[in-house]
Design a protein around this nucleic acid. Structure first.
Lengths: 157, 157
DNA sequence: GCAGTAAACTTCAAGCTTAAAGTTTCATGC
DNA sequence: GCATGAAACTTTAAGCTTGAAGTTTACTGC
C-alpha cells in the first residue's frame, strides 16, 4: 500500500518534470524558428502555420476550418489571413452556396514562397533535433501523441 | 552508401514528425492550462510563469533576471509585473547600490495565491500526462532536455 | 411565409509578445 | 572631473491571441 502510493507520487513528480522539459524545449525551438523566419523570410510563425495548413488542404479551407485545424480562435484567423491577402500569398474566394463563408487558398506566389520556407524549416528542425537518438524519435512521438489525443477527445465530448 | 542516405532521410522526416507532435501536444496542454487558470483563478499563463520563477528565487529577481529566466523580452516583463503589482501579488523593491534596477518579490498574498494555483497545476498536468507510461517519462524528459540545452548553449556563444 | 435558432464570420477590448528606440544610471579610462 | 560606453529599464509600434459581443446569412419547424 505504502509502496503503491510512493510510486504514484514519484510518477506524478516525474510527469511534472517531464512537462516542464517539454515546455522548455518547445519554447527554445519555437524561439529559434520564429527568429529564423523573421530574419530569413521577414515572416512569422502564425503566418507559416496558416500557409502550412493551406498547403495540406490543397482545395482550400474556410475560415472556420482554419481555426479548427490550427486550434486558435476565429477572430485570430481573421487578422492573419487579412495580412496574408495583403501580401498576395493567399486569396479569399466566395463559397457558391453560402454567402457567409469564404474559402481561403494559396496563390501561386504563396506556394512558391512557402516551398522555400518549408524546405528551410525542415532543415532547421533536423539540426535542432540532432541530439535525439534515432531510435528514440518514434517512441517519443507516439507518447506525446497520446497526450494530445486525450485532450482532443476531451474537447469533442 | 545508398543505405546511409536512405536512413538519414528517414531520420530527418521522423524528426520533423517528432517536432510536429511535440508542438501539437504542447499547444494542447497549454490551451488546457490557460483555460483552467482563467476559469478557476481568473489568471493567465504568463502571470503564472512569473510567479513560479519568483517562487523558485525566494530572495527576488531583477527585471532582467526575470526576462533571462523566462526567456522573454525585457519589455514583456515590464507589463506583466506591472499588473501583478496592481493586484498586490508581487512587489518591486529598490536595489540599494543601483538606482536603475528593481528587485521583484512575491508578497504574502502572492505566495498564498500561487500555492493554490501550483497545487491545482500539478494535478492538471498529472492527469494530462497519464497516458505516458511511467517508464517512458524519464527518457523522454532527458531527450528533450538535450534539445533545449543545445539551443541554450548556442545562445550563449 | 416566417419566427426562432444556429452557423460563419468580424469586431472589440484587454492582454501578451517582440524588436527597436529612448531614458536614466553606472562604470571605466584618462 | 568628465567623456564614453554599457547596463537596466521603459516605451512604442506592430502583430498575435483570446473570449465575448455583434452582424449577416442559412436552416428548421410550423
Amino acid at each position: 500500500m505504502t509502496k503503491t502510493i510512493a510510486a504514484d507520487t514519484q510518477t506524478s513528480k516525474d510527469r511534472l518534470r517531464l512537462w516542464l522539459r517539454v515546455l522548455k524545449a518547445t519554447r527554445a525551438v519555437e524561439n529559434e524558428v520564429r527568429e529564423n523566419l523573421r530574419r530569413e523570410f521577414s515572416s512569422t510563425l502564425p503566418r507559416f502555420d496558416v500557409m502550412a495548413a493551406l498547403t495540406q488542404h490543397n482545395d482550400g479551407l474556410k475560415m472556420s476550418g482554419l481555426s479548427t485545424v490550427l486550434k486558435v480562435s476565429n477572430g485570430n484567423v481573421t487578422g492573419i489571413v487579412e495580412r496574408l491577402v495583403e501580401d498576395g500569398l493567399v486569396i479569399r474566394e466566395k463559397v457558391p452556396g453560402d454567402r457567409r463563408a469564404s474559402l481561403v487558398k494559396m496563390t501561386a506566389k504563396g506556394r512558391a514562397e512557402f516551398a522555400k520556407q518549408a524546405a528551410a524549416h525542415e532543415q532547421w528542425i533536423d539540426t535542432m533535433f540532432a541530439g535525439v537518438a534515432a531510435e528514440q524519435v518514434v517512441p517519443i512521438a507516439d507518447a506525446l501523441d497520446a497526450v494530445a489525443r486525450q485532450l482532443d477527445d476531451k474537447d469533442e465530448r
